[in-house]
Design a binder for these strands. Structure first.
Lengths: 228, 228
DNA sequence: CCCAAATCTTAAGAAATTCTTACAGCCTTA
DNA sequence: TAAGGCTGTAAGAATTTCTTAAGATTTGGG
């Protein structure tokens, strides 16, 4: 389990690191929100402990960004004890918060609580580097996709969509959700943009695109990759 | 959204009720753990706020019981502020805790935070989970319905109706209620739209639609899915 | 056993969603 | 600069689902 600790105060980061590593977690460090985002994109992170007040990009805004891209549980740290701060953090997507100074045992308890919840519910996160369902295999490190051992060349957008669906095989994603996850949550395109990409992916990975084996549509709801 | 507030102090329950109802939640009340369990078994509860110290069955033991039977988020209330208590509560399955006295705004924030975890994007009526009664299983994540292990393909409306009835198995819903919940409309004319959908669902999930095993009619009242 | 009210059944047209194809703009690469 | 591939958009086709209506059937009370 990788836990990202994000705080500009190195002493606090170090203290937290010791407690977490004592419990067997792997600790990654970041000193501001931008750095945190970079780390999240480059390696699997299962939980984030984040300070609200930081230079460059503050913790709240970083949390929002993180929420847009992956649902990783976030525990916020706050130097202030004011309720308004707490509530803001929770409403903006944090799962829990603590005020500094905090009790180390309490920190551990909260981390465990969040991780238990997270593993129970299943995640949108890309925890492994290889995803598989039936004969469909996606190696996220080499960005290689194979169907029944045969390599398939996908374009970047196609790859992102298929990875999202395969990494969460069995789960249905609405067109809106796919759009939000694959593109930046900016403006909306034409309603059938995603449909066209789905069609193109099917042409490449399905034997018969009209009777898809992997990439299925759930009428009125969205698309999913079958869990095989 | 139904929230169960469980505390032996009636004043506190009443105070919490006011705050929650202000936010549009429906509040159910219980004065001890046993009562809480009874309520959970008799009607849908989406979140529980529970005091640790109570007569008959204390909050911690009640939480454990609840966790064994259903995964409903639990926010614990504690009169003591000691860390040991907090940690015990979290480790025993509570999702969050607060110490009395608490700030009402903080309570609301925590309630929302917990509910967000469990709700799907579409409707706020349901947690993202699996509903089952007898051989009928509905996986809300993959939107997959199976009867005796065999997959059944339902249309969006059919799925919504069956999910409503199965998620609240044993409870009878009038045609008006079904219409209101599924279509989100108050008005309901003199047509038999719901009846037609019921018929279609029966054709798919029942061996003999004329003698339904799951989807039964309660004459003059409405429909229900049998609790098996 | 009959009647009134409620539910069931069937089918067909209407409506909604997804699929398919084609094309133009853009970026990358040679 | 030209070629080739990627992406987003549009429009119509194809498919699936929803609603409505009318008649048949079932239920419970008298």
């Amino acid at each position: 389990m990788n836990i990202l600790v994000c705080d500009d105060d190195r002493e606090i980061v170090e203290a937290i690191r010791i407690y977490l590593e004592n419990e067997g977690y792997t600790v990654l460090k970041a000193s501001d929100g931008l750095e945190a985002l970079q780390i999240i994109e480059s390696q699997p992170v299962h939980l984030i402990i984040m300070d609200i007040m930081m230079p460059h990009m503050d913790g709240l805004r970083a949390t929002i960004k993180i929420r847009e891209e992956a649902s990783i549980p976030v525990i916020m740290l706050s130097a202030k004890a004011e309720d308004t701060d707490k509530i803001m953090g929770l409403n903006m997507g944090a799962d829990d918060y603590m005020t500094k100074p905090f009790n180390p045992l309490e920190l551990i308890a909260r981390v465990k609580s969040q991780l238990r919840r997270y593993t129970t519910l299943g995640s949108l996160e890309f925890r492994d580097s290889v995803y598989q369902t039936g004969g469909l295999v996606i190696d996220d490190e080499s960005k290689q996709v194979t169907v029944d051992g045969e390599e398939v060349r996908l374009t970047p957008v196609q790859y992102k969509i298929l990875r999202l669906l395969t990494a969460n095989a069995g789960r249905v994603f609405s067109i809106d959700q796919i759009y939000a996850k694959v593109w930046q949550e900016d403006a909306y395109g034409a309603d059938n943009t995603v449909a066209v990409h789905i069609r193109r992916i099917r042409e490449k990975i399905e034997i018969n695109p009209k009777e898809p084996k992997y990439l299925k549509v759930v009428w009125g709801i969205g698309y999913k990759v079958e869990k095989l």
